[in-house]
């Protein structure tokens, strides 16, 4: 499971980084979203990968670490808010400069 998980994370991060470097606002937002998914999964995996283990201590012999789950929850909320803010900023920028390039102007070839 670890290897599959690691490969998934790697691909997601690579796609995220590639999209962020596209310098067009829509791809950048998608890239950031992918990146934050990858990060969230990474946080999750840092509590060790187990399946079918509840995050409650005492009820069963083997339990999952509850802390990374709480951290992921926080990270998701923050990431969501930030993405929303970026989108609003991007729309305002688009209106003002008529381009979706992150530099607010088309690159001169």
């Amino acid at each position: 499971m670890e290897i599959l998980f690691a490969i998934t994370l790697g691909i997601m991060t690579a796609c995220g980084v590639y999209l962020v470097l596209r310098a067009r606002i829509f791809s950048v937002v998608l890239g950031l979203t992918l990146l934050s998914y990858a990060v969230n999964l990474f946080i999750f995996s840092m509590g060790r990968l187990t399946s079918g283990a509840p995050a409650v201590i005492g009820s069963v012999a083997e339990h999952a670490d509850p802390l990374p789950q709480a951290l992921v929850l926080t990270a998701i909320v923050i990431g969501f808010a930030m993405t929303a803010f970026v989108l609003v900023l991007a729309l305002r920028n688009l209106k003002l400069s008529n381009t979706d390039h992150v530099d607010s102007q088309e690159p001169t070839p």
């Binding site: 990146l35 990060v39 930030m82």
Partner: peptide, 20 residues
């Protein structure tokens, strides 16, 4: 904003690595 968002992602990776 974009730079800091990428920074936050790296921050989280660093923190969770330490936690792991």
């Amino acid at each position: 904003v974009l730079l800091n968002l990428v920074g936050s992602a790296i921050f989280l990776i660093g923190i969770s690595l330490l936690y792991g």
